[in-house]
């Protein structure tokens, strides 16, 4: 969307660039030509409100969070009532079987919910790019799932996948197949969450890809056509390589967001009956890292351990983002 926008240069790669390539590719022209020095007072004034808020609500919390992870924090005692416990929270974290389960769950949801989704998005983008009619209708239709609230969508899917009388199982039964326990089987639960993510984000990514495709100059395709490349060859040898920055960008963003999945499992499986203190569904099959963090921090009120979990989540996400970049670079070398 956005990215199709006017100034071609700020195309989809631009967003990627802001995360990755940053200043390298674009020289910023200082707006002081002709030797007349612009007054800097208003410039600082302009960035002050943002940075004041940024300092209070991002910088301070991050530092505070690191401090917290070394504390046994007393909820009612406040900062004064907390006790320094060294690395104990982290010792617990590495031994914590539940956190390990949450990592595995999150990774599986990531794999199931990211790669098929991005592949489908590429196909959709290529298709939209190739048609001339209904282009903007397709964009809207594919983008629509992304603006709906996750809570509402999760409620829809919860009803669709409901075990005995949900539409999916009814359809399976109609085909003579047996139903799947979508909301109780640990694997099926992850599939449901991944399906939800795919449904909501496929169109969004397709539109990013589309914008990237439209930024590819027609001459490149003409040259390829002159060399005898058909549409499929053109897609593999022209479109895909030129889309690499956008693909990397979407993969990184999808990795970051799916590894931090929270709302879907929280709404589907968050609260159970009074007797069963579990969350994340039966067998904690959909207990994600962030859901576990939420439980420990705001249900058990163990802020110190919660902060340690948050650091653990960050570490896991970082590892996989780095892997993404590494893979992208290996591709470069070839």
């Amino acid at each position: 969307m956005t990215l199709t926008a006017p100034s071609g240069a700020a195309g989809p790669g631009a967003a990627a660039a802001s995360a990755g390539r940053g200043r390298k590719n674009r020289l910023i022209r200082p707006a002081r030509t002709g030797g007349s020095q612009q007054r800097l007072g208003p410039v600082y004034l302009a960035i002050t409100p943002f940075f004041a808020l940024f300092g209070v609500f991002v910088l301070v919390p991050v530092v505070f969070s690191i401090w917290l992870s070394f504390q046994k924090y007393s909820v009612l005692g406040g900062i004064g009532g907390s006790e320094f416990v060294g690395l104990r929270n982290f010792e617990f974290l590495v031994q914590d079987a539940t956190f390990r389960r949450a990592i595995v769950n999150s990774l599986l949801i990531w794999v199931l919910g990211t790669f098929p989704m991005l592949a489908m998005a590429l196909v959709v983008a290529a298709m939209i790019n190739s048609v001339t009619k209904l282009k903007s209708f397709y964009r809207l239709a594919y983008f629509l799932p992304n603006v709906t609230s996750i809570v509402a969508v999760t409620l829809f899917f919860g009803a669709l996948f409901s075990e005995q009388f949900g539409l999916i199982n009814q359809a399976l039964a109609g085909l003579g197949l047996s139903g799947v326990p979508w909301l109780t089987d640990p694997w099926a639960m992850k599939v449901v969450v991944a399906t939800l993510i795919t449904w909501q984000w496929c169109g969004y990514n397709a539109i990013l890809y589309l914008a990237g495709m439209q930024a590819i100059p027609g001459e490149v395709y003409e040259a390829a056509a002159l060399d005898g490349a058909g549409p499929v060859r053109q897609f593999w040898s022209v479109t895909l390589p030129l889309l690499r920055p956008v693909i990397l960008f979407t993969t990184v963003i999808s990795t970051i967001t799916t590894l931090q999945t929270f709302t879907e499992p929280q709404v589907l499986f968050g609260s159970n009956t009074a007797v069963n203190p579990n969350s994340g569904g039966p067998g904690q099959g959909a207990l994600t890292m962030v859901l576990y963090f939420y439980q420990q921090a705001f249900n058990n009120n163990d802020y110190g351990y919660g902060a340690a979990i948050a650091m653990g989540v960050f570490a896991v996400v970082l590892v996989f983002v780095v892997i993404n970049f590494r893979l992208a670079r290996t591709g470069d070398d070839r």
């Binding site: 409901s162 075990e163 005995q164 009388f165 326990p181 909301l183 109780t184 159970n272 009956t273 569904g281 039966p282």
Partner: peptide, 15 residues
């Protein structure tokens, strides 16, 4: 009954 979700339970009771 190995039923863990509320809707499934209602349906199992009804059925």
């Amino acid at each position: 009954g190995a039923v863990f979700d509320g809707t499934g339970y209602n349906q199992a009771l009804a059925a």
